[in-house]
């Protein structure tokens, strides 16, 4: 077989494989949006869920998902950033570091049900945090940390050593070189990691059923006192998220329009993740340009 022919066949096969991926993706997203979008209405997004009758909305679940995401990122991002910086810039190449990396990899392949049950036993029961957004956020942090740490470490490592040397040669401390020179360059990669982990958090159900709970008590969106149990910002209240809601209406619910609700909720879930992705990219690009003066 001559090289040209080999090349054509290889290219054909690769195009075919890519085509399969794209088709599956388009089919799934198309199916969800096609079935869901017609059922989304302002009323659906702004009214509370109904247990027995039709016409329930997803107001609380949607908010809970977003709130949980924010809380999870607030807890996990600083930890992951610190760990990522340590692994990329400070850690010596020895067995301790290898052990840490292996541990992170093991943690990242932990099934989410296991994380959920661990969260239930440890956070909900042992630490007496009860079914709450906080329990959910901490459980999701366990879930989220490995991915986030790894992606931050990799983004930092992808920045050329020459940049670090330049900083050193000016008599700058390691810390200043890392935070002011390397981190800005690594920002787009770090952001990709945040977006990926956010998508995972947003779509997670199993780990949350046992930690954040399955009930969405009605809350007061005008009450800004986070210590008040009725406040929407109270992290100690149980909170069913959108993904958990989809699971629940499909398994236990007796509402007659369960199918409509889950289709519409799925579509909302996808759209929100998309908006989050685009928003994060936009803000990230803006920040990157501001910090690096590239236009």
């Amino acid at each position: 077989m001559n090289p040209k022919r080999t090349n054509n066949i290889a290219t054909g096969v690769i195009y075919g494989l890519v085509g399969i991926v794209v088709l599956i993706l388009l089919f799934l997203i198309g199916y969800i949006l096609f079935n869901g979008v017609p059922n989304i209405s302002w009323q659906f997004l702004t009214s509370p869920a109904q247990a027995f009758s039709a016409g329930g909305g997803i107001r609380d679940q949607l908010f809970n998902s977003l709130y949980l995401l924010v809380l999870t990122l607030i807890i996990s991002f600083p930890i992951a950033l610190g760990a990522g910086i340590y692994l990329a810039e400070y850690a010596a190449d020895n067995w301790v570091t290898h052990l840490i990396r292996t541990t992170i990899e093991v943690l990242s392949s932990l099934p989410s049900v296991v994380v959920g049950l661990f969260g239930y036993l440890f956070l909900v029961i042992q630490l007496n945090l009860s079914f709450s957004i906080l329990s959910g956020a901490i459980a999701l942090t366990f879930f989220n940390l490995p991915l986030l740490t790894r992606s931050i470490e990799e983004s930092l490592n992808s920045v050329s050593d020459l940049q670090k040397q330049a900083g050193m040669s000016l008599g700058l401390s390691d810390w200043r070189t890392i935070t002011r020179i390397i981190l800005p360059v690594a920002l787009p990669g770090i952001l990709t990691g945040v977006i990926l982990s956010a998508g995972r958090v947003f779509g997670e159900a199993a780990a949350l059923i046992y930690t954040a709970g399955q009930s969405a008590p009605s809350v007061d969106y005008g009450n800004w006192n986070i210590f008040d149990p009725a406040s929407f910002l109270n992290p100690m209240r149980p909170a069913e998220t959108l993904a958990v809601h989809i699971w629940k209406v499909n398994t236990e619910s007796v509402t007659p329009d369960a199918h409509l609700i889950s289709s519409a909720s799925s579509a909302v879930l996808i759209i929100v993740i998309l908006v989050f992705n685009l928003g994060a990219r936009f803000i990230g690009n803006w920040l990157y340009k501001k910090m690096t003066a590239t236009r």
């Binding site: 050329s160 940049q163 330049a166 040669s169 020179i181 800005p184 003066a293």
Partner: peptide, 10 residues
């Protein structure tokens, strides 16, 4: 000053 130019991304 190093072998390869290494200006900061600034």
């Amino acid at each position: 000053v190093f072998q390869r130019p290494n200006p900061f991304a600034k």
